Computed example of a mutant assay.
Amino acid sequence: MIRLTRRAALAFVTTVAFAGLTAAPSLAAAKIQRLVSPGGIEAWFVQDATVPLIAMEYAFGGGAAQDPADKPGTANMVASLMDEGAADLDSKTFHERLERRAIELSYNAQRDAFRGSLRMLKDHRDEAFDLLRLSLSQPRFDAVDVERIRNQVLSNLRRESSNPSSIASRKFLEVAFGSHP
């Protein structure tokens, strides 16, 4: 008869339970399709029927490298404002609609791309895609939102100016790439 200590028995049970949890996702293999629109837009469609969630990531060429020399931070500011109201929805109303349906919509500007992300439960896809469409085609850029976001950006820049990781990252990019965008 094998006699296990309490610690060994706990380790065995934990290992078996963990193995069962990690094996479960492999039972529902995701389908992946490469799609290309008539206009040449490429998309990768990944479908997993086990989760009632739609998640979408998208990017447009451009980004911070295309900021005017005399207006650095333009792409970052635009990205920060894209979910601050659209069409006839002010920022508060726009965010209330997102929150009411647990829709996550965000934008960010990188060096060479302008990116967006959208996540929602399948049941709320119509409203989520409507809000995405409005934010892309009819952003508001209300003065009060521009000033609030500008203050947030300035606060982040002040914090990053004394953050060792941020300083090291900027210095690396400067040494590695010089003035190249």
Results as ranks from 00 to 15, higher is better:
17 A>P: 00
18 F>A: 09
29 A>S: 14
30 A>S: 14
30 A>K: 09
33 Q>Y: 14
35 L>I: 15
37 S>I: 01
38 P>T: 07
39 G>N: 13
39 G>Y: 06
43 A>I: 06
44 W>M: 10
46 V>P: 06
50 T>W: 12
52 P>I: 09
53 L>M: 11
53 L>V: 14
53 L>I: 14
54 I>V: 15
55 A>F: 08
57 E>M: 07
57 E>P: 00
58 Y>F: 15
58 Y>R: 06
60 F>R: 11
60 F>Q: 13
61 G>D: 08
62 G>P: 11
62 G>T: 01
62 G>W: 01
64 A>L: 10
65 A>H: 08
68 P>V: 05
69 A>I: 00
71 K>T: 07
75 A>P: 12
77 M>V: 08
78 V>P: 03
78 V>I: 14
79 A>N: 07
81 L>M: 11
83 D>Y: 06
83 D>V: 13
84 E>A: 15
84 E>N: 10
85 G>M: 09
88 D>N: 11
89 L>N: 01
90 D>Y: 03
91 S>E: 10
92 K>C: 00
93 T>K: 12
93 T>N: 08
94 F>D: 03
95 H>S: 11
96 E>I: 11
98 L>Q: 04
99 E>T: 05
99 E>W: 00
100 R>E: 15
100 R>V: 05
101 R>A: 14
102 A>F: 06
103 I>W: 05
104 E>Y: 07
108 N>Q: 13
108 N>D: 13
109 A>E: 05
109 A>H: 03
109 A>N: 01
109 A>Q: 03
111 R>N: 12
111 R>F: 14
112 D>F: 15
113 A>N: 13
113 A>T: 11
115 R>K: 14
117 S>Q: 10
118 L>T: 10
118 L>S: 11
119 R>S: 15
120 M>H: 10
120 M>R: 00
122 K>S: 15
123 D>P: 00
125 R>Q: 11
127 E>K: 03
128 A>M: 05
130 D>L: 13
132 L>R: 00
133 R>Y: 15
134 L>I: 03
134 L>E: 01
134 L>T: 00
135 S>V: 04
138 Q>E: 12
139 P>M: 04
140 R>A: 02
141 F>K: 02
141 F>W: 01
142 D>C: 03
142 D>G: 02
142 D>F: 04
143 A>I: 03
143 A>H: 01
144 V>F: 03
145 D>L: 01
147 E>N: 04
147 E>A: 04
148 R>Q: 05
151 N>Q: 10
